[in-house]
């Protein structure tokens, strides 16, 4: 049979240590190459930065997304198979403890890679921004169930106002029949089952009221963001939050990041040209061009990374087996049997 012969040849090739070492080095060289090419850009980006020929190679081979392109993953699968076959063959040669440890090390690496593939296929992650006091439904972001509420958010500073820690006080409600109340911070995510919630970013949000005309409308926007007031005329307002406003000869600035003297710097733009601007404290109204705006309040929002991933536990188990195998393998090689090497 043709296929049988072909399969036998493939197995023989994979069983050779030479193939394994070549695959190891090819994966190394290709991975290194990927660090020199900016990843995840559009085809036009490469055309502009690398010229016709090089960009054709990059786009054609999928080097713009190298670590996820099919042939790179095929390389890794081949390496996995080669590791499995080599480790199995070596086990048949000798059943000493160091040989067994070596087998486990190699199985652990395959285990880690399977875990990684699992995560690639079955993990889900989403970035959300949630204001203090707000509640969101997790199924709107592709997760099974539960509501998430940001009860409080705070930042601790060092004496020189460099941030020391960001902390979000969260309630996870009705998640698999549980209610969890926990404070998370950088390096201390919330973990329940395969769901993890990470403290990622933060910022200020501002609430204005548009008093122009007969009806009042509330405008909520993030610090430094633009809000479209009139689509036909292309009129926008930009709000920059100054938590500790100070105006002196050095210019407009915030003295500290603490909201001790909160002001908002509003800029009215038409067709992206500045029409008018003003700096006002909380509660004050201002006339900007033909618009009348009031600065109602400000509040922090928290940027959270939410992730559902069960593959990671397979990977971590692989790590433990790999370390144990490595330790036993070389412990026995050097100290278990003195003079063997």
């Amino acid at each position: 049979m043709m296929i049988n012969k072909w399969l036998k040849q493939l197995t023989q090739m994979l069983a050779s240590m030479q193939t394994a070492i070549y695959l190891l080095l090819i994966v190394g060289v290709v991975s290194a190459l990927g660090t020199f090419i900016p990843q995840g850009q559009t085809p036009t980006f490469y055309l502009q930065h690398y010229g016709r020929t090089t960009s054709m190679i990059i786009n054609g081979l999928g080097l713009s997304n190298l670590y996820h392109v099919w042939w790179f993953q095929l390389l890794i699968i081949l390496l996995c198979l080669s590791i499995l076959v080599c480790a199995y063959r070596r086990l048949r040669w000798g059943k000493k403890i160091s040989g067994l440890a070596s087998l486990f090390m190699h199985l652990a690496i395959v285990f880690i890679l399977i875990g990684a593939l699992w995560s690639l296929g079955y993990s889900h992650s989403s970035f959300i921004e949630i204001a203090r006091g707000q509640t969101i439904a997790l199924n709107n972001y592709g997760f099974e169930e539960g509501q998430l509420k940001l009860n409080d958010f705070k930042i601790d500073y060092y004496p020189d106002f460099q941030p020391r820690q960001y902390t979000s006080d969260l309630s996870l409600i009705n998640y698999h029949g549980k209610n969890i109340h926990q404070s998370i911070s950088v390096n201390h995510p919330l973990k329940t089952g395969s769901l993890k919630i990470y403290q990622s970013t933060w910022g200020w949000a501002i609430q204005l009221t548009n008093l122009t005309g007969t009806t009042e409308t509330i405008i909520s926007l993030k610090d430094k963001d633009l809000f479209l007031l009139d689509e036909a005329q292309q009129v926008k307002v930009q709000a920059v939050f100054l938590p500790d406003f100070k105006d002196d000869k050095t210019g407009i600035q915030s003295k500290t990041p603490l909201p001790d003297h909160p002001h908002v710097w509003l800029t009215l733009l038409q067709q992206d040209k500045v029409v008018d601007m003003a700096i006002i404290p909380v509660g004050q109204e201002v006339q900007l061009g033909s618009y009348s705006l009031r600065f109602d309040t400000f509040y922090p929002y928290s940027g959270l990374q939410i992730k559902q991933d069960s593959g990671v536990y397979m990977v971590f188990a692989g790590f433990i087996i790999l370390l144990a195998g490595l330790g036993i393998r070389y412990w026995f090689a050097f100290w278990g049997k003195k003079g063997a090497n």
């Binding site: 190394g28 991975s31 990927g34 660090t35 950088v186 993890k196 990470y198 990622s200």
Partner: peptide
């Protein structure tokens, strides 16, 4: 801390190399 154990960050990738 970042919510991902491997991101092909240059430092990570070169340590693998």
């Amino acid at each position: 801390v970042w919510g991902s154990w491997w991101t092909w960050d240059p430092k990570e990738t070169w340590s693998l190399v």
